[in-house]
Design a protein around this nucleic acid. Structure first.
Lengths: 217, 217
DNA sequence: AATAATTTTTAGTTTTGTCTAAATTTTAAT
DNA sequence: ATTAAAATTTAGACAAAACTAAAAATTATT
């Protein structure tokens, strides 16, 4: 499997878990910053290899094979992220590009030994689940902060947007995985939230709230 | 820089340190298991980028730029080998292929943090020197066992051949880096050596002796 | 020094993954 | 139900890196 094929599978996998429908050619092209015609070419190749179900003009979905392959790439990506943060002292906003390269290293032995070395983590530094060697994922109950009612006490357990900009904003506001977040009130006009984060009061926009995953406690 | 360009630079670097002349197209082709015509194509490209000195039919050598680039690839390869053996419990005959992939990961921050994490090692698991971030190499005095006189006491400090077969042979004979090796006698007929390795007597062929680096003590 | 053998380069082709531009299909709007 | 708009696919081209076969240069041999 080539790097390019792996990147397509991964993208289709991510789009599938966010949305829950057949994935369109354009959606893939946009996410990968490439052209729709390139996507079509690749979908044909992946279909040929029984990694995707593809019918002209009808969108695409992963086959069993494709899903497993995608999960193994995601597994590698997230384990490497844990390694970078836990062992090499990277911060959570620095790991993405490097993990993007490391996820393509081909060695089952390597990734399983890395998994052991890291203590078989179940989540990456952004709170996303790490598939095990069989592709099984432990789903943790979580909701977007924007979908929670007032006066609820929560714990921050993940981020939806993993861009450097967003993660550095969170650092600045001292919001990290594990931070306690209580919703004090909601502004009707713009859906901004008045929060208490680790006993400090803070106002965040709905855009922020729509990118933070929390767990009710 | 592409993977392929990096592989050519690395090969030229290795050939240059073993031999000490201009490197021929055929030597590169043989080492890389490719065709001479492919090598010519790549040499033109590398010359274009000022990474090699190349004159048609005259062989090739690395420029300053090319030498530094090659050393950085070797640095990555060897640091990853240390990581695999020291942290992930690989044996020294299992690391080559994986390191061959990892050496192409592009991130200065990654490799320098890895270096720190490993305690700034100066040698890889086969006894080869690891260039530092500036390309400096600490040269350790060492000779092939085949070039040492009788009755000399030595320490094994490296291997010339890093193939799985050779390394597993050494494992079987309980020869490792740090093993004490004394030459008891040499058979004139085939240049085989009668050794005492860690107080165990052992006979090895000249082929073995020609692939073991030792240090006189 | 002339010729044979070897090495190296050139020319032209292939594969992978991308692109542009045109054609086709689907979806939306009147 | 047509037509307009949007999405998707096809056709053809290109760059990278490899190959084969033929040509050219170098080296070795007589």
């Amino acid at each position: 499997m080539t790097f390019s094929e792996e990147n397509y599978l991964k993208t289709i996998y991510h789009l599938t878990t966010h949305l829950n429908t057949e994935i369109s050619t354009n959606a893939i092209a946009e996410k990968m910053e490439t052209k729709a015609s390139s996507v079509t070419d690749m979908l044909k190749k992946l279909a040929e290899k029984d990694l995707v179900n593809y019918k002209k003009y009808q969108g695409v979905s992963l086959t069993e094979n494709g899903q497993l392959a995608a999960k193994m790439i995601v597994r590698k990506h997230r384990l490497w992220e844990v390694f970078l943060v836990e062992k090499l002292d990277f911060s959570w906003d620095e790991v993405h590009d490097v993990a993007e390269q490391l996820e393509h290293i081909k060695s089952e032995k390597l990734i399983n030994k890395l998994d052991t070395f890291l203590g078989n983590p179940t989540e990456d530094p952004h709170g996303d689940p790490i598939p095990d060697a069989n592709g099984n994922i432990i789903k943790v109950e979580k909701q977007l902060l924007s979908e929670i009612g007032i006066a609820k006490k929560t714990i921050c357990v993940g981020v939806r947007d993993t861009s450097t900009e967003f993660l550095q904003y969170l650092d600045k506001q001292k919001i990290a995985l594990g931070s306690s977040i209580e919703i004090l009130s909601k502004e009707e006009f713009d859906a901004s939230l008045h929060l208490k984060v680790n006993n400090q009061e803070l106002v965040v926009s709905s855009k922020i709230a729509g990118n933070l995953y929390v767990q009710l406690i």
